[in-house]
Amino acid sequence: MSGELYEVISAVGETIIGNRQMLTDLDAAIGDGDHGINMARGFEAVKAKLQTLETESDIGKVLKTVGMTLISSVGGAAGPLYGTAFLRAAVPSQGKTELDVETIGLMLEAAIAGIKERGKATTGEKTMLDALVPAYEAFQDGAKTGKSVIECLELACEAAQQGVEFTKTIIATKGRASYLGERSRGHQDPGATSSYIMLKALLEHLRRQ
């Protein structure tokens, strides 16, 4: 695996691991309090798996491995959801060693479709989709006006952050938090938050390059 690809995934993984407590606290308020622990466990497993992919430069193959690893190691609902997202993102990036704006747009689109299908969910239900869908739309807006990858990701991150804020204003209708109904209002969604911090970690890593 190329050094850069390894570093990008490591950076995203380290951010999740570093935010374990924050994500768990968010989840404890409206869910079962394991989102941070589960996501960190998943990305610890990804970290170990990456060692075996040192010579792999195909981005699609690496993302497929990340998805498979998350599915088998996260343990909670986020495993099949993010795992499916990475597996789907691996399709448009298959055989590629570099990514352009168009491909990233396709990857986001495929990942979101995977999450919607797996979770039988849509936006406005207080889930990760409330961060990811606006992020994708903002990314595509940037792409249409000829912006660079970093510029598009900046727009996406901003939209994802607003999406996370939006989840505070609505009640959950999917997942464990939906049991709380009205009491879920006022809390930000842990899944939307983990989606946002992954995008942000990706952006920050690319900015440092």
């Binding site: 466990r41 498979m68 088998s72 190691s73 996260v74 343990g75 495993g79």
Partner: peptide, 13 residues
């Protein structure tokens, strides 16, 4: 459970 003995479900298993 999970391969590491933890609580969770594993689609591959």
């Amino acid at each position: 459970g999970m391969a590491d003995g933890g609580i969770g479900t594993d689609a591959f298993q």
